[in-house]
Amino acid sequence: MPNWQWFHRLGSPKWLLITLDRWLPWVLGLAFLTLLLSLIWGLAFTPPDYKQGDVFRIIYIHVPAAVVALAAYYAMAIAGAIAIIWRMKVADMVLRSIAPVGAVLTFIALFTGAIWGKPTWGTYWVWQDARLTSMLILFFLYLGIIALHDAFNGSASGQRAAAIMSLVGTVNIPIIYKSVDWWASLHQPASIKFTEESTIALEMFQPLMIAIPGFYLFCLAAVMLNMKVQIAHNSRNNSWMIEHAKIDS
């Protein structure tokens, strides 16, 4: 029989905080290790691209940030669905914790893309491009969800409103994902493929394959930190929280 006790304990903020505290150093440490390894490998030891030279190295930031920004939205929307259907408080905390992380990641993807675009495409930004525009929409969606959540001053209605908005926004995700295939776009089509041979050299591919999990881990750590803040804020008047804060300091 699998042990399902942890599922009931998710409802207890105290248990959750202690568990987060226990896991956080490991996740954070592993994230730093993988990011350090992949970035040093990718930025210093990978051979330069035959056409783009050293400019291509920005993919070790750009691609993982974009991949995780999309995945974060999925995770947030799933948390939103759980919050609506089962009214789990944890799901709402997850939603609110992911939103700022996702917004920052989307911004990093857009920003690094613009920096890369200037020497390669000759321009920072193209308005007609579907991939760029849909990523920008994603950024605004994240901001809108944060604003909506906070407009209700932490009441349960704000949590449900943000959850509904996150579900409505999911229509954008497949559009972003498929935009480079559906429309004629300046953005190149996906080079990494699962079902056929990838169109990226192996030496360039290896560090990227470490950077992507590295970004995932780092974002997980950031979300966990955000959740700690949420728990502390929500239970700031409870006696156990006051005791906990005393032990910590």
């Binding site: 929409i137 994603l138 605004f140 969606l141 809108g144 604003a147 909506l148 908005m165 409505v168 926004g169």
Partner: peptide, 9 residues
């Protein structure tokens, strides 16, 4: 807030 939410959609 309504404008902020509707614009991306």
């Amino acid at each position: 807030l309504l404008s902020l939410l509707s614009m991306p959609l």
